[in-house]
Write a protein that binds this DNA or RNA. Structure first.
Lengths: 213, 213
DNA sequence: CGCGTCCTTGAACACCTTCAATTCAAGTGG
DNA sequence: CCACTTGAATTGAAGGTGTTCAAGGACGCG
C-alpha cells in the first residue's frame, strides 16, 4: 500500500541538511531506556539491538536493526528501550524538532516514516512468531534463517553466517536461557543443519533449515 | 513525536466520503489470510482479532483490536492475517486506491496512518513482553490487566471484566495450550486475584494484580 | 430432555531452566 | 613466548513447569 516510496532530490537534500553523521564502536550505547531524548536515528552501516529492561531482571530484545533501519521512538519524551551497537556502526542522527518543522514544508517525507513504522510492525510480528514457537530448536533455526537475510553478515557463496550478537543476545531475543542457546546450537549441529566454525561464524544449510522450520 | 494529531474538518470529510460503513455479527470473518484485498478497516464499535495461521497447525493471534483501531495491512496485495470479529462489530471500510488518491491531495492524512502504525508497533512490543514471560501465570495476569483498559468491556465501578474472547483465543494470544488458560485462571482465583463470575465475566483486583505482575 | 460446544480437571511425560563446573579464546604482563 | 587473567561459551544433572491425552462437567439451544 505505502511501499516503494521514493523521496525527490530536494526532499532528500532537506533531510540530509538536518542530519548529523555519528559513529559508535561495537557494544556502545546510543541511548538508554528511560533517558529523555530528542533524536531519531538511521543506520548507515553496522547493527544495533533494541532492548527493554524489566523490573524482574528480564532483558527482552525487541529487535536487531541493520543498515537503513531507523529507531528512536519516544514515549512521553523518553526512550522506552536502550539502543546498543553490536558492531562498529555509523549512524545518521536527526533532531525531532527539526524534523517536525521539515514535515510542515515537505509533508511527503512522512511517507518515509510511515513505511519504516510498517516495516517495524511487520518485523515485530515475525519476531513474535519466532519467540512463541513451542520448541526452542525451531525458534533458533528460524532465527538463523532471519539472520542470513542480512547481506552484510551472510556470505551466499560459502553459506557462512557471521553472528553480530553473542549467545546472551540470542537468548534475550528468543526468550530462553543462555545455556539453551549453546545446547540448541549443538543440537542443530548434530542434526547436520549447521556447522560451528567458531563461536561467531556458522556455516548453515539454508535448504534443510528452511524445510525443518 | 507524531502523536496528538488531528485532521481538519475538510480532511475528515474527504476521508468519510471514501469510507463505507459495514457490519459483522460476532465470530464472522472480515477477511481471510492469503486472500487478495484492496481495503483497510477502522473499528467504529466492537472488537476484532487478527490471527495468523501456520503450516504446523499453530494459530498465533497477533492482536485484539478495539474501537478506533485500524487494520488491514497488505503484503503483495494479500492479507497476511485473518481478521475475525469477537462480538457484534461496526466498521469503516476504506478502499486503498481511493485512499492513495486522497493522500495526494491531503498529504497530512498520512499522519493519521503513521500514528496508527506506531500504535500498532507499540502494542506488538507489549504483546511480546507478555507472551515471553517465563511463567504462564504472569502472562495471564498481565493480559487481564491489558483487557481491563478497554472501557467498553470493563466496569470500573464493579471491577468486572467481560472477556470478549474465548479460552482458545487467550491461549493463542499468549502462546500456551487451552487447558493452561483454565488451570491458570483457577490458580489466579485461588490466589484471590480474580473471581470467576461466569466463564466470560471476571471480577478482578486490579491493585493486587498490578503488584503481582 | 438430549445434544453440542465450551470449559475444566487429572495424570504422565517432555522440555527447558537453574545451578554448578568446565572448557575455550583472547588479552595482558612478565 | 609463556603464565595468568578474564569473560564468553559449553556441558552436566536435578528439578520445575507446561503439554498432551483423556475424561468429566457446565451451559445454552433445539
Amino acid at each position: 500500500m505505502f511501499s516503494s516510496f521514493k523521496l525527490t532530490g530536494e526532499e532528500r537534500e532537506a533531510l540530509n541538511a538536518i542530519s548529523t553523521r555519528i559513529h559508535r564502536p561495537a557494544k556502545r550505547r546510543v541511548y538508554t531506556q528511560g533517558e529523555p531524548g530528542n533524536h531519531i536515528y538511521r543506520i548507515r552501516s553496522g547493527a544495533v539491538r533494541l532492548e527493554h529492561h524489566m523490573k524482574d531482571g528480564r532483558n527482552q530484545i525487541f529487535a536487531f536493526l541493520w543498515a537503513d533501519d531507523m529507531f528512536g521512538t519516544l514515549e512521553d519524551g523518553m526512550y522506552h528501550t536502550s539502543a546498543i551497537t553490536l558492531v562498529d556502526t555509523y549512524l545518521f542522527q536527526i533532531s525531532c524538532s527539526a524534523l517536525k518543522g521539515l514535515v510542515e514544508v515537505y509533508p511527503r517525507i512522512q511517507a518515509l516514516f510511515l513505511q519504516q513504522a510498517l516495516d517495524y510492525a511487520k518485523t515485530a510480528e515475525r519476531h513474535l512468531l519466532l519467540a512463541t514457537c513451542p520448541l526452542v530448536i525451531k525458534r533458533l533455526a528460524g532465527f538463523l534463517l532471519e539472520c542470513s537475510r542480512q547481506k552484510d553478515f551472510f556470505d551466499r557463496q560459502t553459506n557462512i553466517l557471521t553472528l553480530a550478537m553473542d549467545r546472551k543476545d540470542i537468548a534475550d531475543y528468543l526468550g530462553f536461557a543462555i545455556e539453551t542457546t549453546s545446547r540448541t546450537l549443538k543440537e542443530l549441529e548434530d542434526m547436520g543443519l549447521i556447522q560451528r566454525l567458531s563461536s561467531q561464524r556458522i556455516k548453515i544449510d539454508c535448504a534443510r533449515i528452511g524445510a525443518f522450520v
